[in-house]
Structure formats: structure tokens, C-alpha cells
Design a protein around this nucleic acid. Sequence first.
DNA 1: TTGAAAGCGCTAACAT
DNA 2: ATGTTAGCGCTTTCAA
Lengths: 340, 340
Amino acid sequence: MNLEDIAKRAGVSRSTVSRVINGEEYVSDKTRKKVLAVIDEVGFSPNPAGRMLVTQRTCVIGIVIPYPLQYVFSGDDPYYYTTVLQAITDVSYGRDYATLLWIGNAREDDERFYQRILRNRLMDGLVIVASVIGEELLLRHLLKNGTPFTLVGRPLNYLDQISFATVDNVSAAEQAVTHLIKAGRTRIGIITGEFDNVDAQERWQGYKNALATAQIPEDPELMIEAKFTRMRGYHGMKQLLDKNIDGLFASSDLIGIGAMDAIHEAGLRVPEDIAIVGFDDFPVAAQSSPPLTTIRQSVVEKAKVATEILLDMLDGKVSGPKQVILPTQLVIRQTCGYKI
Amino acid sequence: MNLEDIAKRAGVSRSTVSRVINGEEYVSDKTRKKVLAVIDEVGFSPNPAGRMLVTQRTCVIGIVIPYPLQYVFSGDDPYYYTTVLQAITDVSYGRDYATLLWIGNAREDDERFYQRILRNRLMDGLVIVASVIGEELLLRHLLKNGTPFTLVGRPLNYLDQISFATVDNVSAAEQAVTHLIKAGRTRIGIITGEFDNVDAQERWQGYKNALATAQIPEDPELMIEAKFTRMRGYHGMKQLLDKNIDGLFASSDLIGIGAMDAIHEAGLRVPEDIAIVGFDDFPVAAQSSPPLTTIRQSVVEKAKVATEILLDMLDGKVSGPKQVILPTQLVIRQTCGYKI
DNA sequence: TTGAAAGCGCTAACAT
DNA sequence: ATGTTAGCGCTTTCAA
């Protein structure tokens, strides 16, 4: 069933059917109705390959998550990715784009993965979820052959040529640690995500900045590189327990909650003995006991904005690189004990 | 850059280039090498639209998750979906298929969602992730117009016409409850997922079967419909606390862990006062304290098998509906106290 | 072993 | 307001 068939049944020409389908003007109401009736009757929908061939557009965007889904969060809270996926698809569908999904694979090296994406050519552009360092190669390829793309998160290279949406992790972390300092804490530890994670790195920097501003010397013993998981938060805190800290900046909520597990297990209290400020404000933060004081970032917003920038580029509404830094917010609950 | 361009540069015809790209025989080694060199040099990859138009195949499959990603698990453990997505994409990429992602959207009704999928026509077939009742309409459409598809999970209708991979939830739940009975428990409660979830329903049935077999009368007071979340497990257990139960079948690990939260909070012990058997054996099960005795199902396997069946159908290796029931396994840890 | 040519289903420029 | 026609880039006969 194709345009020609519909045209015959409706007693018109192929082009008229095409016009009706694409909602173009210069079709009489009567003709339009007749054609639509036939289309509806036979349940016709146009073959996208034919259309793609002539328009050179697919109305498909790619979503690239350049690592196995459970890599970063080690399986214990993939909240981040599901939320990002939902947000990207919501925006795309709303603007009549379909989404092709590319998830990294533990058994395949980056080069092959990127080649598969680049060879596919079924996409008008890409949204790349960039929490982990290492997609530099992909970005270079894309920039070289001019494929439109945006990042959810901040790229490390080509900063001036790339569109992205992110939050200011550095300032937000500074704010978190400053909050601990205002609460009177002076021996403040940090447990952060792995260093190949851009967010983890930036939050680490924010921690250092806040200490510097308050003229508290850094103590490497209090700074632990872990992962964004509850388990690693728990074990990280165990290392800090005999270091006599009175404050902890947990670089993610899960880390914070894991740390609380360890603190409670040791018979200590939060916030009385150790005050904690987390990061993310994922749903778990409000549900922990005591509820976690944390920095709120909107993952949904980040993903949505990145997608909108891409679609705006594809629809010709935006040309140059566009970069959006979304606001964060300190959410005061009960793990710090300090009210502003 | 198209076949013609490559042909000119290599001094051959379009058809020869096509043959080389598609790895056909009857191309001399010399010609093949020359063409490949040119392709490599200019970084050519064929336009999929042209190919699709003539072959009537896209080498794209759709992944359909007919509900918002965070609907079923209310955001506190999207482990299931990330794992399913990873498994489906792994298998697809391994067999040179790309994946188009369709996630349900809270703001859009089912009818519209399904129409978008059906109209898309960019897919050779679909893998449908079917944990929640309600995709009947989609299945009917697909059966009607002959689109190949498989389900991850068991369908409720058209059972004989549909290919799927699932586990035997009924027997597995029976085994779980029987394990509690063998441990000497007689007042056994159940907290299960919502009834529009096929797995929840089947596990509920298995619970009843086991009681019947052991001639323990059902007590509606001990049977709680909740959701597959830690929170709902916690609140469900709170309702059961004054019912004097000595055993609990938690229809998911998260429910079990939430129940333990409530039990511990009430100053009771697991398994001494209340023995628990969960379901799923997600990573959280081994990490809880005490570690959860549970039924292991392989979500990865379920998703992989469903995808493989679909691709086999598309590659003409399988014709009729193929249905696979995957094994489950009782994993004995420390929440039941009974060693076989 | 290679090339010529037809045609997949669609859009868009042009003609009417 | 509608029809005619020329491709878009590819595969696939068919002929050589």
C-alpha cells in the first residue's frame, strides 16, 4: 500500500495525497476529506524510507549512553539513567521525533561502539549522556563530520564548539560544604564518585574551594574517592570513622545514605556527631532516616534542555553552540542541623 | 557521497560497489580491494534509506516499554528496566540490529502511544516489555497487521499466537512459600505487587497454592496488595505486625527489605520472629542485613531470550510462535533460617 | 566477473 | 487547486 494506491482510490494524484499527508495548503477541503477518509479506511501510513530518501531527514534522534547502564552506579541505583531516558523520550515524542538507543557494552571497545553509531546514519542528531570521561573520540568524529549533537552534562574538550546542559557542580558543592562549615563543623570529610566522572571531579573541586575560602587546610586523609553507590558510601565512611570527622560532604545521596549506615552502625548520631550534606536530591534522599540535607539538581531538566537544544538545532531554530547551566538548590532536611 | 561517487573513484560500476559492501561473491579480489580502499579512504557508509526502500528491511527493532519508566517501581528501583534495556541492546547490537526505544508517557493515552509506534514503520519487529496489564490493544494491532514481535514476560491474551520469554512465577512462589512452611511457619503473610502486574498476580496464585497444598487456610487479613517498592513493603509489613505472623512471602526483594525495615523497627528479629522469603534476587537481596533468602530469576536471560526469538523470526530461522519458560532457583540466605 | 537499467515510495519543482 | 515528472541512493534482475 503506497501513495499511488491511495491516490487511485481517492481519484486524485500521488502529489495530492502527499500534500494531504504533510498538511500542506492548496488542497481543497473536499479533496482533503476524501483522501483522509481513504487513508483512514485502509489504515495507511507512508513508508519512511521513501520520504527519508528525498527529504534527507529521518525525524529520529539517537540517545547515546557510552557505557553499560549499570557501570557507573554498579546496579544499586540506576535512577539517573532511567530518568534521563524518560525525559529525552518525552521531549522527543512531543516534537514528533523517534529515538534510537545506543547503550555501551562491556564486551565491545569504544572505537567499535562509536563506529556503529557513526555508520548508522539513521539519525538527524544525537543526545549524548556524558557522565563519564572517555567519549572524546566520539565527539571528535561528530564535530568532524558535522553531525548535530548535544550533551547531558559538561564535556571536557571542545567546550566552545559543543551544546550542552549541565549544573554548576563546583558552586553547588561549595555551597554544600559551606553549609557544613556554617553549622560549626571544622573537620569535614568528602566521599566522592570515581575520578573518571566529570560530576565527581567538579564536586571534589567545590569541596576544596569551600575549605580554602574558610581557611581550613585540606587533609588528604579525609578525602576519599569511591563510587556513587550506597555500598561505597558505607565503606568510605568506615575508613573515615577513626579520623574523627564532624562533617561529611557526600558527593551523591547514595553515598550519604551509605555513610549514615556506617555511622549508625558505629553507634554515632547524625547530625549530632557527624553532619552530612549530600548531592542530587534523588527520591531516596527524602526517604532516608534522618532525611538527607542535600543539593537538588534536576536530572529531568538537564535531559530535557539538552534534548530541546538538539531539536531546535534540527528544526533550524538555533545555530551556534548553546550551553545551559541549570540552577541547583540547597535542600535543608535533618542531617546537618543548621538552619540558615 | 553515494555509491556512484565511490564507483567513479574506484573505476567500477555502482552494482560492483554494492556487491562489495554487501559481501557478495562474484567480485574479483582485485576489484574488491580497490573498492574497499576507496570506501575506507573517504569514510563512506551507505544511505540506509535507499537500502530500506528496496530491501524492505531496516535492521532496526523497537523496544516498547508501555508505561513511564518509573511507574511500576515508583522510582526507587528501576533495576528491572535498565537491566532489560541493556540485555536487549546487547543482543541486538551483536546481531547488527539497532534499537528504537518507545517509553510510555504519563501525559499521553495508550491509544496515541500505540498509534505512534504502529505508524512509525521504521522497525522490522518489536520487543515488548510486558510487566503491566494493558497492552492488549497494542498486541491486537500487531497481530492484525502481522508485525513480528516478542514479549519479555507472559501475555494475558492471545497466548497461543505470541512469542515470549518468562519465568514460572506460580511454581516459584509456591516453592518460596513451601520453604517457609518447611521452616515450621504456619501464619504466613504475603505482600505483593499491584494486581495489574502479571508477575504479582502469578506470585499471589503461587502463594495460595502452597497454602492449599499444606492445608493451611487462607486468611485475607494476611494478604496485602502493595507495590514492588521498599516503601510499600515497609508500610505493608506495618499492617501485618499486629497480625502475629511468623512468616512472610515478599513478592519482590524490595518488598522484603522494606518489610525487614518495619520488623527491625518494631524490635523483632528476622528470621527468629518472622521468616522472610523474597523474589527476584536483584543485587539488593544479597546486600540486605540479614541477606535475603529469595527466588532467583534472571531478568537478563528473559530479555535476551525474547530478543533472540524476535531476531530469529526476522532472520527467518523461526516461524511459529516460540515460548520459553526460564528456570528459577531458591537462593537460601539468612532470612528464613531453614536449610534444606 | 562486471555493467546497464529498472524500480522501491516518496517529495518538490514545475506546469496547468 | 491539482497533476506530471524527475530524482533521492540503493539493490537486483538481466545481459554481456
